[in-house]
Design a binder for these strands. Structure first.
Lengths: 144, 144
DNA sequence: CAAGTAGCTTGCAAAATGCAAGTGAAAATG
DNA sequence: CATTTTCACTTGCATTTTGCAAGCTACTTG
């Protein structure tokens, strides 16, 4: 179920591979919620401002897991809850998200100028901090 | 027609803005064709390996123009042809494309390893070269 | 043990996508 | 200079994806 084989790629181009995994209206927003807001549960993703429908969310989470971008664990404290977290492949999307945010910041009127300014100031540091935070979270969730 | 106002954004998040403009299965591939392959015409985009349908292509080109990412000119030498080129906003997508290519290169089996190696070797140089090439192309098309 | 709550699924309508076959204007060909 | 080709699309229709509202089931909480 987690490893349903994809039918096949439209082409071998690496950009096409990225687009096939991430090129829709929701996947990157889910990853943003995990990476920047620290969301971990179905309910938190559902509550995010853009308002994804629950069936679409379930589908996207399944796909992202099948691609190895996120992974799922049972919450040891609450048997109803699943904890979604970024896999290393998902954490490696930090530079992609960063560039997309910076691009929009440069060309569109958007909110969250604070985030944009932090990214502009030192992109590498920002990405390094995301990696550090996730190294910590993964370690701590394993040690529970 | 080129400036049909968007209904409204789902949210003010800069990443959401990017996703609303680029988050589909074709837009970034069209930009890739312009940026990396030097495609300029409808026919060239149609011929690209992934095989976009002509009605979808027409729609994406219209949208990308409406967003200010590409622009259109008549070919002075052939009245049937339109020349599509990247606007500055489109050229500024080079870092986004680069990171997406590098991410796929790191995590998927893809072709075009040569491109990936060039990007890995010196990302900034690669992006600078795209900018330089486009500065030249725009200048030369204007001077015709 | 009744009333939530979390994470889904289901059914159905609406929108987006894809395919094949046009169309009209402008070039190239004979 | 009439005919064929090329180019950038459009049209009609089937298929797929998305979105909305309403369940449903296994837990947990009071």
């Amino acid at each position: 179920m987690a490893n349903k084989r994809q039918p096949k790629r439209r082409s071998g181009c690496p950009l096409n591979a990225s687009v096939e995994m991430l090129g829709d209206r929701w996947s990157l927003l889910i990853i943003r919620d995990m990476m920047l807001l620290g969301s971990h549960t179905f309910k938190e993703f559902l509550a995010s401002y853009e308002g994804i429908a629950s069936n679409i969310l379930a589908d996207r989470l399944r796909r992202l897991e099948a691609y190895g971008i996120i992974r799922t664990e049972q919450d040891p404290a609450d048997g109803r809850k699943l904890i979604y977290e970024l896999a290393p492949k998902g954490i490696d999307l930090a530079p992609v998200l960063t560039e997309m945010v910076l691009w929009a910041g440069r060309h569109e009127k958007t909110e969250n100028q604070a985030l944009i300014r932090i990214m502009q100031k030192d992109k590498q540091k920002f990405i390094a901090e995301i990696r550090r935070r996730w190294a910590y979270e993964t370690a701590s969730s394993k040690s529970k």
